[in-house]
Measured scan of single mutants.
Amino acid sequence: NKFNKEMRNAYWEIALLPNLNNQQKRAFIRSLYDDPSQSANLLAEAKKLNDAQA
C-alpha cells in the first residue's frame, strides 16, 4: 500500500528531526495516523518547523 510506505517513511523522518521536541514529534505522528494520505504534507510542515527552530 502506497500510503503505508509513505507514512512509514514520514514517521521515521519526523522522529529523527533534531530540532523538534517530543511533543511536536508526537503531534505530527498522531496526524500521520489520523490521515496517512497527508504524509508528504505533514513531513514538509515538520521539516519547515525543524528548520525554523534550528
Rank of each mutant, 00 (worst) to 15 (best):
residue 1 N to A: 03
residue 1 N to H: 04
residue 1 N to I: 06
residue 1 N to W: 01
residue 1 N to C: 11
residue 1 N to T: 07
residue 1 N to E: 09
residue 1 N to K: 06
residue 2 K to M: 10
residue 2 K to R: 08
residue 2 K to I: 13
residue 2 K to P: 07
residue 2 K to Y: 07
residue 2 K to D: 15
residue 2 K to N: 14
residue 2 K to T: 04
residue 3 F to P: 15
residue 3 F to S: 11
residue 3 F to E: 11
residue 3 F to Q: 09
residue 3 F to W: 05
residue 3 F to M: 09
residue 3 F to Y: 11
residue 3 F to C: 15
residue 4 N to W: 15
residue 4 N to S: 03
residue 4 N to I: 04
residue 4 N to P: 10
residue 4 N to R: 03
residue 4 N to C: 10
residue 4 N to D: 14
residue 5 K to C: 06
residue 5 K to L: 02
residue 5 K to D: 10
residue 5 K to A: 06
residue 6 E to H: 05
residue 6 E to W: 03
residue 6 E to R: 02
residue 6 E to V: 06
residue 6 E to P: 04
residue 6 E to N: 05
residue 6 E to S: 03
residue 6 E to D: 06
residue 6 E to I: 06
residue 7 M to R: 02
residue 7 M to L: 13
residue 7 M to H: 03
residue 7 M to N: 02
residue 7 M to W: 14
residue 7 M to I: 08
residue 7 M to G: 02
residue 7 M to V: 09
residue 7 M to Y: 07
residue 7 M to C: 02
residue 8 R to Y: 13
residue 8 R to T: 09
residue 8 R to V: 06
residue 8 R to H: 10
residue 8 R to C: 15
residue 8 R to D: 04
residue 8 R to M: 14
residue 9 N to T: 15
residue 9 N to F: 12
residue 9 N to Q: 15
residue 9 N to R: 15
residue 9 N to K: 15
residue 9 N to I: 15
residue 9 N to D: 10
residue 9 N to S: 12
residue 10 A to M: 07
residue 10 A to E: 01
residue 10 A to K: 05
residue 10 A to T: 10
residue 10 A to C: 02
residue 10 A to Q: 02
residue 10 A to Y: 06
residue 10 A to D: 01
residue 11 Y to G: 04
residue 11 Y to I: 14
residue 11 Y to V: 14
residue 11 Y to D: 01
residue 11 Y to T: 12
residue 11 Y to R: 14
residue 11 Y to P: 01
residue 12 W to T: 10
residue 12 W to K: 14
residue 12 W to R: 15
residue 12 W to H: 08
residue 12 W to S: 08
residue 12 W to I: 07
residue 12 W to F: 13
residue 13 E to I: 15
residue 13 E to V: 14
residue 13 E to M: 15
residue 13 E to D: 05
residue 13 E to H: 15
residue 14 I to A: 00
residue 14 I to V: 05
residue 14 I to N: 00
residue 14 I to C: 01
residue 14 I to D: 00
residue 14 I to M: 06
residue 14 I to Q: 00
residue 15 A to E: 05
residue 15 A to H: 15
residue 16 L to A: 14
residue 16 L to N: 14
residue 16 L to T: 09
residue 16 L to E: 06
residue 16 L to R: 15
residue 16 L to K: 15
residue 16 L to C: 07
residue 16 L to H: 14
residue 16 L to G: 14
residue 16 L to P: 01
residue 17 L to F: 09
residue 17 L to P: 00
residue 17 L to G: 00
residue 17 L to V: 00
residue 17 L to Y: 06
residue 17 L to R: 01
residue 17 L to H: 07
residue 17 L to Q: 04
residue 18 P to H: 10
residue 18 P to K: 15
residue 18 P to S: 11
residue 18 P to C: 06
residue 18 P to V: 09
residue 18 P to N: 07
residue 18 P to T: 10
residue 18 P to L: 11
residue 18 P to D: 07
residue 19 N to P: 00
residue 19 N to E: 04
residue 19 N to G: 06
residue 19 N to D: 04
residue 19 N to V: 03
residue 19 N to W: 08
residue 20 L to A: 00
residue 20 L to N: 00
residue 20 L to I: 08
residue 20 L to M: 03
residue 20 L to W: 00
residue 20 L to V: 05
residue 20 L to Y: 00
residue 21 N to L: 09
residue 21 N to S: 10
residue 21 N to W: 12
residue 21 N to K: 07
residue 21 N to P: 04
residue 22 N to S: 13
residue 22 N to E: 12
residue 22 N to F: 15
residue 23 Q to S: 10
residue 23 Q to K: 07
residue 23 Q to Y: 13
residue 23 Q to M: 11
residue 24 Q to F: 03
residue 24 Q to C: 02
residue 24 Q to S: 04
residue 24 Q to H: 02
residue 24 Q to V: 05
residue 24 Q to W: 03
residue 24 Q to G: 01
residue 24 Q to P: 00
residue 24 Q to L: 06
residue 25 K to Q: 02
residue 25 K to T: 02
residue 25 K to G: 00
residue 25 K to R: 12
residue 25 K to A: 02
residue 26 R to E: 03
residue 26 R to K: 05
residue 26 R to M: 11
residue 26 R to Q: 03
residue 26 R to N: 06
residue 27 A to K: 08
residue 27 A to R: 10
residue 27 A to N: 09
residue 27 A to E: 05
residue 27 A to W: 15
residue 27 A to I: 06
residue 28 F to T: 01
residue 28 F to S: 01
residue 28 F to Y: 10
residue 28 F to I: 03
residue 28 F to A: 02
residue 28 F to K: 01
residue 28 F to H: 01
residue 28 F to Q: 01
residue 28 F to V: 02
residue 28 F to C: 01
residue 29 I to V: 13
residue 29 I to K: 06
residue 29 I to E: 02
residue 29 I to T: 07
residue 30 R to E: 02
residue 30 R to Y: 11
residue 31 S to P: 02
residue 31 S to R: 15
residue 31 S to G: 07
residue 31 S to C: 03
residue 32 L to W: 02
residue 32 L to F: 02
residue 32 L to Q: 01
residue 32 L to M: 05
residue 32 L to D: 00
residue 32 L to I: 06
residue 32 L to G: 01
residue 33 Y to N: 03
residue 33 Y to D: 02
residue 33 Y to W: 07
residue 33 Y to V: 09
residue 33 Y to L: 09
residue 33 Y to R: 04
residue 34 D to C: 09
residue 34 D to H: 06
residue 34 D to R: 14
residue 34 D to L: 14
residue 34 D to Q: 09
residue 34 D to T: 09
residue 35 D to F: 13
residue 35 D to M: 13
residue 35 D to K: 13
residue 35 D to P: 01
residue 35 D to H: 13
residue 35 D to N: 12
residue 36 P to R: 04
residue 36 P to D: 02
residue 36 P to C: 02
residue 36 P to E: 02
residue 36 P to Q: 05
residue 36 P to I: 06
residue 37 S to D: 05
residue 37 S to L: 06
residue 37 S to G: 08
residue 37 S to W: 09
residue 37 S to N: 04
residue 37 S to E: 03
residue 37 S to H: 05
residue 38 Q to K: 11
residue 38 Q to F: 06
residue 38 Q to A: 08
residue 38 Q to I: 07
residue 38 Q to P: 02
residue 38 Q to H: 09
residue 39 S to C: 03
residue 39 S to E: 02
residue 39 S to K: 14
residue 39 S to M: 15
residue 39 S to P: 04
residue 39 S to H: 13
residue 39 S to A: 10
residue 39 S to Q: 07
residue 40 A to D: 06
residue 40 A to I: 09
residue 40 A to Y: 12
residue 40 A to V: 11
residue 40 A to F: 12
residue 40 A to G: 09
residue 41 N to L: 13
residue 41 N to V: 07
residue 41 N to M: 14
residue 42 L to P: 01
residue 42 L to M: 08
residue 42 L to Y: 07
residue 42 L to F: 08
residue 42 L to K: 04
residue 42 L to A: 05
residue 43 L to V: 14
residue 43 L to H: 02
residue 43 L to R: 14
residue 43 L to A: 10
residue 43 L to Q: 06
residue 43 L to I: 12
residue 44 A to W: 14
residue 44 A to F: 12
residue 44 A to E: 06
residue 45 E to R: 15
residue 46 A to L: 01
residue 46 A to I: 02
residue 46 A to Q: 00
residue 46 A to S: 07
residue 46 A to E: 00
residue 46 A to H: 00
residue 47 K to R: 14
residue 47 K to D: 02
residue 47 K to H: 08
residue 47 K to Y: 13
residue 47 K to L: 08
residue 47 K to A: 06
residue 48 K to I: 15
residue 48 K to N: 13
residue 48 K to L: 11
residue 48 K to D: 06
residue 48 K to E: 12
residue 48 K to C: 02
residue 49 L to H: 05
residue 49 L to C: 03
residue 49 L to W: 07
residue 49 L to G: 01
residue 49 L to V: 09
residue 49 L to E: 04
residue 49 L to P: 00
residue 49 L to I: 10
residue 49 L to D: 02
residue 50 N to Q: 03
residue 50 N to S: 12
residue 50 N to R: 01
residue 50 N to Y: 01
residue 50 N to L: 01
residue 50 N to F: 01
residue 50 N to D: 08
residue 50 N to W: 01
residue 51 D to C: 07
residue 51 D to W: 13
residue 51 D to V: 12
residue 51 D to Q: 11
residue 51 D to S: 09
residue 51 D to F: 12
residue 52 A to M: 13
residue 52 A to P: 03
residue 52 A to Q: 14
residue 52 A to H: 12
residue 52 A to I: 11
residue 52 A to R: 10
residue 52 A to N: 10
residue 52 A to S: 07
residue 53 Q to N: 07
residue 53 Q to D: 06
residue 53 Q to H: 07
residue 53 Q to T: 07
residue 53 Q to E: 07
residue 53 Q to R: 03
residue 53 Q to S: 11
residue 54 A to I: 08
residue 54 A to Q: 14
residue 54 A to L: 09
residue 54 A to N: 08
residue 54 A to F: 11
residue 54 A to T: 15
residue 54 A to D: 09
